[in-house]
């Protein structure tokens, strides 16, 4: 039995409609990964400059925070960018409905050619 969201029937539906609720981890995935990267970068810098791994712990905190902040901003910017892009496309479809007819749903039996086995010997 098929689960998940219902397949879209029109192009407009494809670009709109309520999005499914995101899991918590995927909501904050990028800032968390960025923060971790910042932390690891400072540890690496300490290793290269021959310092103990965790000396100057304030720099680890600052590095993690800075990277988390940057990735949070980048993530938001990216979401806004795609939201705007979808809105533009939606608007275009609304203005030119004649170019975007509802999808003609096909089944595989209509797409695939009949299978005719040919057997030698």
């Amino acid at each position: 039995m098929a689960t998940g969201p219902k397949p879209a029937t029109t192009p407009l539906e494809l670009l709109s409609g309520p999005l499914p609720e995101q899991p918590l981890l995927s909501k904050y995935y990028l800032p968390i990964a960025g923060g971790l990267m910042g932390f690891i970068a400072v540890v690496g810098a300490n290793y290269i400059t021959r310092r103990p791994m965790f000396s100057g712990i304030q720099r680890h905190v600052a590095g993690a925070a800075a990277m988390a902040g940057i990735t949070y901003i980048v993530d938001n910017y990216r979401n806004d960018y795609y939201a705007e892009k979808d809105a533009v496309l939606r608007h275009y479809i609304q203005l030119h409905p004649e170019d975007f007819p509802p999808f003609d749903r096909k089944q595989y039996k209509d797409v695939l050619e009949p299978w005719t086995p040919i057997r030698n010997n």
Binding site: T49, R51, P52, F54, S55, G56, I57, Q58, R59
Partner: peptide, 8 residues
């Protein structure tokens, strides 16, 4: 004081 040391 290594935990907070940064200079070199």
């Amino acid at each position: 004081g290594l935990l907070f040391k940064t200079g070199g």
